[in-house]
């Protein structure tokens, strides 16, 4: 009886971990900006979706594979992120801590409506030859897209960690997040460092957008729900830690699939957000935070 239950559990556990990869991928950029600039970038979800739509456009107009289109998408969002911080948010930061939040909210609304006008509220998806493929692990069928999500998250997390810990610019990002004035006295151009941090966050959003589109259908309104999911991941994982965010994604993914398994599909997100509330109550610095 018990063994049978366990065999049944292997599917939600496997799916939860892989799905957690997608959540982590969306949340990594949010976590980076949150950790460095103390800004909750409420436009993050919409910028992720911007990338989904960009890949959709590349696929439907010139027939480019969504993953291949990242060759353009990643530098494009990197540049948009750099410009957005340098010319828009940095000025808002000079006013107050709340101003950039409001600016980000404005960017979110503009993007949502822009995407609605261009693409209509209809649901779209990045459907390719491999989108619906799946493979077997023992008795479990795993969709290929879920595995790609997980691998992408793992790779992005690994490179972000190495970048932040090993390069001068990465260390400067750490330094600016811990003590901005002291960082300036080290000869760090903190405005430039913030612009790079935001640009890198947007580059990860470009990746997240494509893998999101390969996994789920999306509408111009999807950004908000994925922002909230990513926010949950950052809360669970803890601020400023890339590994923590990655593991936080797994926890939220597992909470969702196991919640669905035990309480029924209708209650799966309820259970996932209950976990977020629980973590906030007992360990506000996050499960893996310092």
């Amino acid at each position: 009886m018990f063994l049978e239950l366990f065999a049944d559990l292997s599917t939600p556990i496997m799916m939860g971990i892989l799905l957690g990869g997608l959540y982590a991928l969306i949340a990594l950029g949010l976590s980076l900006v949150f950790g460095v600039m103390k800004l909750i970038n409420v436009a993050h979800g919409d910028l992720v979706l911007f990338s989904s739509y960009f890949a959709y456009a590349a696929m439907t107009t010139v027939g480019m594979d969504p993953v291949v289109s990242l060759v353009i998408g990643v530098p494009l969002l990197f540049a948009i992120g750099f410009a957005m911080q340098k010319y828009l948010l940095s000025r808002a930061f000079a006013i107050s801590m709340e101003a950039p939040l409001i600016i980000a909210f404005g960017v979110s609304l503009i993007l949502q409506n822009f995407q609605q006008i261009v693409w209509s509220p209809m649901s779209r998806g990045l459907t390719t030859s491999y989108t619906l493929a799946s493979f077997g692990v023992g008795s479990i069928r795993v969709p290929l897209a879920y595995l790609l999500d997980f691998i992408a998250a793992l790779v992005v997390m690994f490179f972000l960690r190495e970048f932040l810990n090993r390069t001068y610019l990465g260390k400067a990002i750490h330094a600016a997040s811990q003590d901005r004035r002291a960082a300036q006295l080290m000869g760090i151009n903190t405005d430039r460092v913030y612009a790079f941090a935001f640009a890198i966050s947007m580059a990860t959003a470009a990746l997240a957008g494509v893998f999101l589109g390969l996994t789920f259908p999306f509408t111009p309104q999807s950004g908000v729900s994925f922002l909230i999911l990513a926010f949950g991941v950052v809360i669970i994982g803890g601020l400023g830690s890339m590994l923590g965010t990655f593991l936080g994604g797994m926890v939220l993914g597992l909470a969702q699939t196991l919640g669905g398994y035990f309480l029924g599909a209708a209650a799966q997100m309820l259970f996932a957000y209950a976990i977020v509330l629980f973590v906030l109550a007992v360990r506000p610095q996050g499960l893996f935070g310092r």
Binding site: A175, D179, A182, L185
Partner: peptide, 9 residues
């Protein structure tokens, strides 16, 4: 003043 080392580095 206050040393201002980066505490978590």
């Amino acid at each position: 003043e206050g040393r201002r080392v980066f505490p978590n580095l």
